[in-house]
């Protein structure tokens, strides 16, 4: 059984979280006898590391343009009759160039989870539900968030879901999310 949703019922922490804050030290003690150096404790410092990248979506850019216009764009290989929900401009089966197609905005939950923890960037958004959505006429699945249900027990494999789009596009795949459609 799942434990109670921690966001609803916050528990007292079981341990103290390590902090990345501290005091700046400008000097450390040094023994007079160099033989004592091998018994010295390690010096541990904080090293910040922050970068802004100029990242291009390249040939996949139309997918993101689609999201900001309320469309889900995938690609299709006419020769193999195979459609990808996430675009792939070269067919993985025959190597030919694929074509852009619009994919349905309604589908079903193929599988799901509820994340109570996450990578640091998403920790503040927990708990959240991840779903892989399956669509009629599309050969691959689509990773997205499911908004609406509170507990994982409210989500069911096979459940009908439909796409919703952020009004203000972030030009990220999270511009689209799914909600229950039943």
């Amino acid at each position: 059984m799942a434990k109670k949703n921690p966001a609803k019922a916050p528990a007292a922490p079981k341990k103290v979280e390590e902090l990345m804050t501290g005091t700046t030290v400008f000097n450390v003690p040094m023994p007079a006898d160099l033989k004592a150096l091998k018994g010295m404790s390690p010096i541990v410092i904080k090293q910040p590391y922050q970068i802004d990248y100029i990242h291009s979506y390249g040939q996949d850019s139309p997918f993101f343009a689609g999201l900001s216009n309320g469309k889900l764009l995938g690609t299709k290989c006419r020769k193999c009759d195979y459609t990808w929900a996430n675009p792939r401009l070269a067919c993985t089966h025959c190597g030919r160039e694929t074509e852009w197609v619009e994919i349905p905005q309604s589908g079903r939950v193929h599988t799901f989870t509820t994340c109570y923890f996450g990578g640091e960037e998403f920790l503040k958004e927990t708990p959240f539900h991840l779903v892989l959505v399956e669509f009629d006429g599309v050969d691959t699945l689509f990773l997205s968030r499911l908004i609406g249900p509170v507990e994982p027990e409210e989500i069911r494999i096979g459940m009908k879901v439909k796409a919703k789009f952020r009004r203000n596009s972030q030009l990220k795949p999270s511009d689209v999310y799914f909600v229950p459609a039943e």
Binding site: F117, G118, G119, F122, E125, F128, L143, I157, K172, P173
Partner: peptide, 24 residues
């Protein structure tokens, strides 16, 4: 990082989805 990570990149979440399907 274009399609999966920004949704809530977390490997335990990915494996949880896989095992939910295995259970199903």
């Amino acid at each position: 990082v274009n399609f999966d990570y920004p949704i809530g990149g977390f490997y335990s979440g990915y494996y949880a989805m896989m095992v939910n399907r295995h259970m199903h």
